[in-house]
């Protein structure tokens, strides 16, 4: 786990960013922060609890669509508050994860490769369903999602400028990071690590592995749902690509490249890959994706702990742990 001072340095640097950069980049980084939040959710579920979810974008997409539907007034004309939208998005993603997790993990349950393929198939199903859901805009998605409105009781404080929006998102992301970091440092986090190591032995100690898996899956989904909700409010657009196969595998690459066992590394992995994408995509054109695929392949083989987590781990712990 990354030490607190390191996380402090990272978030301070992110807070200083808008002072130095143009508005355009502040806007871009707002989105990357949200992707970083999303990456944290997968890092928790996959890296810390050993649940390889190949369809994590389903929770991001559910969060996004629920937020869009609420704030655009598709559910009820009066219930367009951003607070309500965010809460509904998080609850919807968490609720879906609870049902799905119960179905997937109960009894002998699915794990490993089987779980990966089944979650991938479910993300694919959801994407296809949304593409033909005409009330939700089908292929075109929902455009014109209103920005986050912090106003209460009729007052309106819409965040549509880049800088205040950036700081709001940064504050939320930092708060979620701090909460997850505390959670993982708590006895619950220790039990999670034990479950990742050997679930059967943990069960012999009297822990209920199903509930542990469910809890962490639901927390991960809630975080992903929050990220999705923030994303549509910032991007003002919700489309079926948010829920499906493409984003699910993209987040997997960010997390794996950054380092799945370390929340901070997964978070930075998402930001780094997106930043490089926007820089190199112009320079390298179509070769960028080819390069990303190859780098990903090499990193899985040679540095399975991740390209960011490995040096960070050496930097902070001093002693060098085995790579497998």
């Amino acid at each position: 786990m990354a030490p607190r001072w390191l996380a402090g340095v990272v978030f301070m640097a992110l807070a200083a960013f808008p002072l130095l950069a143009a508005d355009y980049w502040t806007g871009q980084l707002t989105r990357y922060l949200i992707f970083g939040l999303f990456a944290m959710s997968l890092s928790l579920v996959w890296g810390r609890a050993g649940i390889l979810c190949f369809g994590q974008a389903m929770f991001f997409g559910i969060g996004g669509y629920v937020m869009a539907a609420c704030t655009m007034g598709l559910v009820g004309g009066a219930l367009t508050s951003s607070y309500l939208g965010l809460a509904a998005a998080v609850l919807a993603a968490a609720g879906f994860a609870a049902l799905l997790g119960y179905f997937l993990f109960l009894g002998r349950g699915l794990s490993g490769a089987y779980l990966a393929i089944v979650t991938l198939a479910i993300a694919y199903i959801l994407e296809q369903t949304l593409k033909s859901a005409y009330t939700l805009g089908a292929d075109n998605g929902l455009s014109g999602v209103p920005p986050i409105d912090l106003g209460l009781f009729g007052a309106s404080v819409e965040l549509w400028q880049e800088t205040p929006r950036y700081y709001l998102v940064l504050a939320i992301v930092a708060a979620v990071y701090a909460a997850l970091d505390r959670l993982l440092a708590s006895p619950f986090g220790v039990v999670l690590t034990a479950m990742h190591g050997d679930p059967r032995r943990l069960a012999f100690f009297g822990y209920h592995v199903l509930s542990l898996r469910l809890i962490v899956f639901v927390i991960g989904a809630a975080v992903a749902g929050l990220a999705g909700a923030l994303f549509v409010a910032v991007d003002e657009f919700a489309s079926p690509t948010l829920i499906g196969f493409g984003l699910s595998t993209e987040v997997l690459i960010w997390v794996a490249l950054g380092g799945k066992e370390m929340l901070l590394a997964a978070f930075l992995g998402a930001i780094a890959v997106r930043l490089m994408e926007s820089t190199f995509a112009e320079l390298l054109g179509d070769f960028w994706i080819l390069a990303l695929g190859l780098v990903f392949m090499v990193s899985v083989v040679l540095l399975p702990r991740g390209l960011i987590a490995t040096p960070l781990g050496r930097l902070t712990s001093g002693r060098h742990r085995d790579g497998t």
């Binding site: 190949f54 490769a113 997997l252 690459i253 794996a256 994706i289 990303l292 695929g293 990903f296 899985v300």
Partner: peptide, 9 residues
Amino acid sequence: ILATWGLSI
């Protein structure tokens, strides 16, 4: 799974 996914991309 991951390495062959990179390969597929």
